[in-house]
Design a binder for these strands. Structure first.
Lengths: 190, 190
DNA sequence: AAGTAAAATGAATAAATATTCATTAATTTT
DNA sequence: AAAATTAATGAATATTTATTCATTTTACTT
């Protein structure tokens, strides 16, 4: 029997994410996706039973990929400040290098395509980051605040600054990123 | 001749914003909106020439309303710390009291419904805030950084924390808001 | 109170989009 | 190399949704 061309999975995934960046979640059709992926529309339905399943799958892949990216080069044995800097830079770098995936994830968050339970277990991927924050609190380096508050504060400011820069056609050089780091770091310090 | 019932404008506006919160921008139909507003579908087209026009109008109203809300009780004569605290609290309060409008604005930002030029002149509404930041910089109270960076940092962290709290069903009490304020304020201090 | 002009209606139509399926192409097995 | 099996196709169909329009209702004018 003939095998599925597994490279198509990747092409569908890349196309979906790219098109959502260009046209928004509301504006992307199955036809658009198949054209961009270089396959027939019917073929999409061999790989995914419908549009909702496709979006959920792509959402899951992006989510896992991003969470894993955040931990690049990080070790739980790193001292707090070293670990924090690594993870912060990874979060920024992921958003700059994979802007389309970053936006896709943001768009999905409020979409009817993404089912409740898929959305819910998002947090578990971030456990190593919560552990790092706990270490910082235990060592009295950072403020003893709720994890969600601390992480939301960091992630939110990074998201907004990167989006603003992108849509305002402003470059985000190393200097600006270092400044953003300093803003965030000074904020969390005890 | 018969007059247009101006209250319908408001009903359409409220319904649209509420439905986008519930179903996402991608999931809202003209039929949904008319039903929720208590009017016939055809009537929508008396008030707005099409869906895109409707969304742009609602977007504009929300945008203006929010920007004006941010300046409640604020005077350009306020000392930096007083003014900053007022505006920060207004930004938070708007998002909590008008969560559906906050989400609508966020959703629109990446939507094909909102035309480029409508999106572009968003910044002008925020001029008083930029002036306040300038004062803080001139007085050497806060870091001398780019306006977009400073505001993005503040707005982004507020957005994310409020969204996380809402979707995680966690309450955001006065204590947490004060802690978020402290994070942001400590971050920008020179 | 009759005339009239615009508002409002909602069923009908048009347009866009998701999904199916009969057919063809490719790959593996025997 | 023929048979078997699944992948791939894309035109056709089904479905959903935007938009129109013939008709009715409402409120103002004379």
């Amino acid at each position: 029997m003939r095998k599925k061309d597994e490279s198509k999975n990747g092409a569908i995934y890349e196309s979906t994410v790219q098109l959502v960046l260009e046209k928004g979640l509301a504006g992307v059709t199955m036809c658009d996706i198949s054209k961009a992926a270089g396959i027939a529309t019917g073929t999409l339905y061999i790989y995914f039973s419908n549009k909702e399943a496709l979006m959920n799958k792509v959402f899951n892949i992006c989510r896992k990929e991003s969470a894993s990216f955040y931990l690049n080069d990080y070790s739980p044995l790193d001292p707090f400040d070293v670990g924090f800097r690594k993870i912060f830079n990874n979060i920024v770098t992921y958003r700059l290098q994979h802007f389309e995936k970053f936006i896709f994830l943001e768009q999905c968050y409020h979409s009817p395509f993404i089912t409740e339970d898929v959305r819910k277990d998002s947090l578990k991927y971030l456990n190593p980051i919560f552990d790092l924050l706990q270490k910082g609190k235990d060592d009295h380096i950072i403020k003893d605040l709720d994890d969600a508050l601390l992480l939301g504060y960091i992630i939110g400011s990074v998201n907004e600054v990167i989006k603003k820069a992108h849509y305002g056609n402003k470059s985000l050089d190393h200097k600006k990123i270092a400044q953003l780091y300093q803003l965030c770091y000074d904020g969390i310090l005890a």
